[in-house]
Design a protein around this nucleic acid. Sequence first.
DNA 1: ACCTGAACACCGTTCAAGT
DNA 2: ACCTGAACACCGTTCAAGT
Lengths: 218, 218
Amino acid sequence: MLVAALALIDRKGVAGFSVRDLARDLGVYPTALYWHVPGRNALIAGAVALALGDLKPARRPTDWAAGVRALFRRYRKAVRVHPAIAPVLGAQLVSNESMPAELVEHMLMLLERAGFSGDQLRHAYNTLVAGMVGFVTLELAPLPDEDPEGWATAHRQRMQEVDARQCPTLAREMPHLARGAFVVRASSGVDQPLDQSFEFWTETVIQGLAAMRERSAP
Amino acid sequence: MLVAALALIDRKGVAGFSVRDLARDLGVYPTALYWHVPGRNALIAGAVALALGDLKPARRPTDWAAGVRALFRRYRKAVRVHPAIAPVLGAQLVSNESMPAELVEHMLMLLERAGFSGDQLRHAYNTLVAGMVGFVTLELAPLPDEDPEGWATAHRQRMQEVDARQCPTLAREMPHLARGAFVVRASSGVDQPLDQSFEFWTETVIQGLAAMRERSAP
DNA sequence: ACCTGAACACCGTTCAAGT
DNA sequence: ACCTGAACACCGTTCAAGT
């Protein structure tokens, strides 16, 4: 059932996902689903958990930085298979089944190995969660559901017309940025992956955490 | 109209926001709104843009790090006034009116001052956007819309029962983490702000960017 | 235990008609 | 130019009834 739900979300997006459509796919009356599941939200939550699957690593990482790098990559890879779930990742379900205790444990273990403890560990952990989820949510955010090509061409047009006096840097860097910069781009990360930016992001978080640890324990 | 829409979203959340309710608030037939606005999505987008308002700074920052710090704080402050918009910030609308060209220009300017150029500038810019949006989206993510207290107590219970053998670090650090750690916490950032973690996050991004610049231009 | 089937209280959006 | 009013094609969820 969750498999079918995830497949439907993949096709129609979370917003377009409906209990009645799912029931039709399963060859069942819509109300039959309510015997198995409390409601629509639970179906979405279950589908998300299914999509993320097991994010725990196959084997122990060599050091904490490598562990973070691997974790971020696994997370992004998993979401890329079902990009339609991106809109709800940071929104509603971070506090749910999508992040099982074992994953939390793994992140805490990495950060403890990095040298954090006490309240600093908590802050570093929050940083790590936000780091893992944040970039990917933005990268894979979908275009407006209706008339996406229309929106895309309109957006490209709008970006072409940026006032070079008011926004000189933006106007000058437009060729670079159009290739894949948030807000400026006219396509989602599904069609135009931001691989290099993602790697840059990952290293930024790792370097930042290393610097913060130095600072708190000199 | 957008003011009324934002007020309604504040009260009912984005998911609970309906065109018909808004029309009722305005003392008008639902279909009347369609003369002014293309549809529900446009109303939400407009309300978000209104909520974020002008994120440009009052005066030029002293240095790029101070500029980033101030920008992140302004963004968080703005969202905290209308936390109900958090779920859609990273999801659909980052590529919209919510981030006007002047804001993009400002971020590029800061990063250029930091010493980035070319493709590195683009990656640093994507990092800055994800950094600005990512943490706050997670921090202010709402509880499940129905029976939030029920969910909260159930979640607290669940966290209390974490297996200390399978998750030793999590079990040991639970007292710290319950005070405000993603996934572990049972309340949203609206009721339980993660001020210190946010500051930690901000500094992590700044330190990380500084380190990345060193690396690319040694 | 699991599903049907009817029913309830909603939706967003269209389009012709009014003023 | 701006709104009414009816209508269309949907929703999620309930609850009694079936098997």
